[in-house]
Design a protein around this nucleic acid. Structure first.
Lengths: 162, 162
DNA sequence: GGAATTAAGGATATATCATATCCGAAAACC
DNA sequence: GGTTTTCGGATATGATATATCCTTAATTCC
């Protein structure tokens, strides 16, 4: 049960977008070069963010992506679900129904007890992600990343933002 | 990010094994027929449980599997990890290191902030599973499954246990 | 108006992993 | 000795993640 690498990419890209000055866009090319990622494939992750209305886009030179909401209004779960999908990690195939001892056409009143427990764990995972805002990540990064690297990084991307 | 179907199978099989009388074994064949599963492939899941020391085996006629511990000493996480592995769902490829603005040979003092958050969510998932014991599942099932189906099921498997 | 740049999305190729089956060896039982 | 069972290796197949390419349409700049 491994998350797509695009999840990691999307989170890092959102962190950069969150630090952009108001109104500026950042292209796929700039984000790919900054993170050392394949541009064409990263593009798919960014498209997912766009479809989830987490980012806005504009075409043409100096076009690209920017956040559609303020970083404190975006949480981790939204980003993760945008690229990973909203399906639960455990899918119940209802194998209890195959029990040959069950009467023909017997109907269960509740979802399978095994599934309920697995879904509870899934919900705990989602709850944790829901509680972390993008602004929290930006706060942590600006504390932990050395100030000069942090500054140079945004100079670098803004130069590429036209 | 989807769990293997073997996780579901293993959990249901453990629930059945937990209800067996002391000292009885149940074969792969019986467990496969009870749940309507491919015998050869289910066997792999049971082997995983065996390698994790959650079940004990014996060969020959009337052989098969039984729990290695009492149901209250086995939790969901042990079973899930036995077949799914212990790897975290999020793998950090440390793409921050590709930032061209970082000085040559710069070394990070902490794991990536993105990874720390994702791992925290992963731990919340594991914590939930760790808190649920196999005996809890058996308790729920014996409450929710109609008594006659429950009884007939164990008569059915015991007949096949020789 | 024309050239360059960009996101969007479809088509395709490749690699990895889950799913599934088969077989042989060793052990236990009759 | 024959049957039943677990165990592990080998192999086949299908689905999905990863990755690339190409076309279209929109936007900017000259």
């Amino acid at each position: 049960m491994i998350l797509k690498s695009q999840v990691e990419w999307a989170l890092h890209c959102c962190a950069i977008l969150a630090g952009l000055p108001e109104g500026r866009y950042l292209s796929t090319k700039a984000l790919a070069e900054l993170h050392g990622l394949p541009k064409e494939y990263l593009s798919k992750a960014l498209q997912s963010l766009s479809q989830a209305s987490l980012v806005e886009t504009t075409l043409g030179p100096s076009g690209g992506y920017r956040l559609a909401k303020t970083p404190s209004d975006i949480n981790f779960l939204e980003i993760v679900e945008a690229v990973e999908g909203k399906a639960r990690s455990f899918t119940c195939t209802n194998i209890r129904a195959n029990n040959p001892c069950r009467p023909e056409g017997y109907c269960d009143s509740k979802p399978c007890a095994v599934a309920r427990i697995m879904w509870e764990a899934d919900e705990a995972w989602r709850d944790t992600l829901r509680r972390v805002r993008l602004s929290d990540l930006v706060g942590t990064l600006s504390e932990e990343v050395p100030a000069d690297i942090w500054r140079r990084t945004f100079e670098w991307v803004l130069k590429r933002a036209g």
